[in-house]
Structures are given as C-alpha cells and as structure tokens.
Measured scan of single mutants.
Amino acid sequence: MGFKLLSKLLVYLTASIMAIASPLAFSVDSSGEYPTVSEIPVGEVRLYQIADGVWSHIATQSFDGAVYPSNGLIVRDGDELLLIDTAWGAKNTAALLAEIEKQIGLPVTRAVSTHFHDDRVGGVDVLRAAGVATYASPSTRRLAEVEGNEIPTHSLEGLSSSGDAVRFGPVELFYPGAAHSTDNLIVYVPSASVLYGGCAIYELSRTSAGNVADADLAEWPTSIERIQQHYPEAQFVIPGHGLPGGLDLLKHTTNVVKAHTNRSVVE
C-alpha cells in the first residue's frame, strides 16, 4: 500500500471513529477524501466538511520552486461564519470567499490569524475590503508590521502568557507558548472536538522541520505538551499544512522538532 493511500485511509478511519463516538456532533463529509496538494491548482481553494458547521479550507501556493498546501478553518456561528487564517495570499483568499459563498452561503463576518507569517495573514486586506472584521493577538499584529505583512485590524486580548485561553464565538483560542513562531495560536472547536494546530503542528508525513527561522526550538516541545494537557479530548487535529489526523500529530511534531534540534547540535 502506497504512503499517500495509507495517509488518506488514516484520515478516513479517524473521521469514521469520530462519527461513531459522537453521532450528534459529527456529520463528516462523505463526498470524498481530504484534498491534497496535487489536486488543488494554485489560485483555487477546496472546502472539506469535518463536522456539522465545521470545515477546513485548503489552498496551495508556490514557494521556492515548489507547491505547498495550506489549511485553515471555518466555523459556523449562528447565521454567520468565523474564518481562521487566510488562504495564503490575496488571490487565494478572494477564491476562498467565493467558494464559501458557493458552498455554504453564509457571510464571513470575523477572521482570526493564528500567527504573523504570510500563509496566515496574506489576504487580510481582501477580507477587510469584503467587510470582514480581522483579528490577531497584539504580538501577531506587531510582528506582521515588522515583517511588512498585512496586519489584522483588531487585537485579541488575554493571550499574552503561555497557557492563556479565551473564548471567541464558537471557538476557544489558546496560546501554548512559542513553537513554530513566538505568537502562534491554537484554535479548538469544543462542539466538535476539532483542534486546529496551525503551523505549530505537523502532518504525519512530514519528517523535516522546514521553516524554523522564527521558531523557538527549545520551547516548542513544552508548548505541545500544554496543548495535549489542555485538549486531551480532541479527536480531529488539523495541521497548518497537509493531512489531518488525531492527537498523534502532536507527538510526531515533537519528535521531528527534537530530531532537528539534535542534528543542529551535532553539526
């Protein structure tokens, strides 16, 4: 069995187990497998329904001669939608809004960016022009300005110390501490036991640490421990890039980060 097929099978099995364990909360999309990078042309966006009122959005972007996937989250909030992270750029984010209108038909009224990198804030200006209120932590807003990236308009308070959590509509926002970046936030959907790890969490097929220019490698494993301790009931975990899975993604990420750190020390 090929690795790609095995990865998709694991996603399907995880979703099936969740649907059985929580039949009222989960209505997993039966329309197909989780979209992969090879299936999404740059400039297009796919939506994948995880649970009743919960979707991931998947886009792709060219970077350094390669094409990478990027995940975000959409959560229903009454007759409105909360968006977590842009679709990595203005063109993708405009396509995301169009796809949401086509498939869901509810307005996106608020959006949260989970850290300051372009795959999370690139497209904020498109959201703002569409009347979406954009939010991020003060740290993310400051770092985005320093980096020359787009800056969300509103500040999220109460997320300055490791372990801080605040309720934001249908989700809980959690600051686990520094990891992929010093400002990275985690998003949890309690009604569906869905954990969105953003770039602080890796997919299972990833074996290298990737972009760690703004990471705190020493603190990252401790931050992941905080996530595990705060959300032990999480059933569906979405990484910032690639295929979702279960809580095993947290341990896998820790292993990859520690291996990278150990290699760096040896070198």
Rank of each mutant, 00 (worst) to 15 (best):
H115E: 00
Y188V: 05
V42W: 15
P244M: 10
Q103N: 13
H230N: 15
F3W: 07
S161Y: 06
I224S: 02
Y68V: 09
L47P: 04
T14P: 13
I40Q: 11
E150Q: 14
G123H: 02
L143D: 02
Q235I: 04
R46W: 10
V126Y: 13
V124W: 04
I227N: 04
A90I: 11
A165Y: 14
T222D: 14
S16N: 05
L83P: 01
G177W: 01
R263S: 09
A130H: 11
T14Q: 09
F116M: 04
G158N: 15
P107W: 05
G177C: 02
S139M: 08
P221T: 12
R142T: 14
E33S: 11
A15T: 06
T153E: 12
A259E: 09
A94P: 04
E44K: 10
T153C: 14
N71P: 00
V166N: 07
K102H: 06
S7P: 07
V257F: 08
T222S: 11
E219Y: 09
E219P: 04
S160I: 12
T253A: 03
A94M: 14
P69T: 06
Y231R: 01
A136Y: 02
V108K: 02
A19K: 08
T86H: 00
S7K: 14
A130W: 12
K4V: 10
N262D: 10
L106M: 10
F63D: 09
E99A: 15
F168C: 03
P107A: 11
R226D: 04
V121K: 00
T109Y: 08
P41Q: 06
V126W: 09
G198C: 04
A51G: 13
D183R: 00
P244S: 07
G197P: 12
A215G: 12
G163Q: 11
P244C: 03
F116Q: 03
G148N: 07
Y135N: 02
P190Q: 06
E267R: 10
D164F: 06
A111D: 03
V108Y: 03
I151K: 15
G32F: 15
P152T: 06
Y188K: 00
V54R: 02
A200Q: 03
E101T: 10
I58Q: 07
D64S: 07
G89N: 13
R141P: 04
V124H: 06
G197Q: 01
A94D: 11
Y175F: 07
W55S: 01
G72T: 00
E172K: 04
R142F: 12
L82W: 10
L24S: 07
P69N: 15
H230D: 12
P176T: 01
W55N: 02
V75Y: 02
E44H: 15
K8Y: 14
E44Q: 12
I100T: 06
H57Q: 11
P138I: 15
G210D: 12
T109H: 14
K4Y: 06
L81S: 04
N149C: 14
Y34P: 12
T134W: 02
Y202R: 11
A59S: 09
A133V: 12
L247E: 09
T182V: 09
Q49I: 05
T109G: 12
T253V: 00
T254Y: 12
I84E: 00
Y188M: 06
A136G: 13
S208E: 12
L73E: 02
A218N: 11
V212Y: 08
L247A: 08
A51I: 15
S160K: 14
S7A: 08
T182L: 11
L81W: 01
G169T: 03
A15R: 08
I224Q: 00
T182E: 09
G246Y: 06
T207Y: 11
A259H: 05
V237M: 03
F236C: 12
A213G: 11
A129P: 02
I104E: 00
A51S: 13
H117E: 00
F26R: 07
V237H: 00
S139I: 14
L250R: 00
E145R: 12
P232I: 06
H117S: 00
L159F: 11
S139C: 09
A178R: 09
K8W: 06
S137W: 05
D64M: 14
D85W: 00
S264L: 07
S27F: 14
A111L: 10
H154N: 05
P107V: 11
V37S: 08
L106P: 04
L195K: 01
G43D: 10
S31H: 05
A66C: 12
A98Q: 11
V112E: 04
L6V: 10
V256S: 05
A87L: 03
D248H: 14
D183K: 00
R120Q: 03
G246S: 11
R46G: 12
K91Y: 14
L13N: 15
A90Y: 09
T140F: 04
R110L: 12
D85H: 03
G210C: 05
E80W: 11
L249T: 03
A95F: 11
K91V: 14
L6R: 08
P239L: 01
L9P: 07
G163L: 07
V11M: 08
G148T: 10
W220C: 03
T253I: 03
I20E: 10
V67A: 07
E150T: 09
A218C: 07
P221E: 12
G78D: 12
M1W: 05
I227M: 15
C199D: 04
Y196W: 02
E150W: 05
S7Y: 15
P23V: 08
I151C: 08
A90S: 13
P232D: 13
P232Q: 07
G245T: 02
G197R: 01
F3N: 06
G65E: 10
V126A: 06
I20P: 12
R167F: 11
A209P: 12
S264Y: 05
G78F: 10
T182H: 08
I40M: 07
Y68S: 11
G105L: 15
S7N: 07
L5D: 12
S193N: 09
G242W: 03
L82D: 03
F168W: 08
E39P: 14
D183N: 04
L83T: 04
V37H: 05
F236Q: 07
V126D: 05
S22K: 13
P35L: 07
S191P: 05
P170D: 05
R141D: 01
A136M: 04
V189A: 06
M1V: 05
R110F: 04
T14E: 10
D77M: 09
G65L: 10
A111V: 07
T60N: 09
T182A: 06
T207C: 05
R120H: 04
V187T: 06
V132G: 01
N184A: 01
T254A: 10
V121N: 02
P138E: 14
D118I: 14
S264W: 07
H154E: 10
G163R: 09
V42Q: 13
Q103Y: 10
Y202N: 07
I104Y: 00
A87W: 00
R206S: 14
D214S: 13
A178V: 09
A25P: 07
S113A: 15
R141Y: 03
S193D: 12
V194W: 01
L5F: 05
I227E: 01
E157W: 14
A178I: 06
L247T: 07
L247F: 05
A218F: 13
T14F: 13
L143P: 03
G89H: 01
N262F: 06
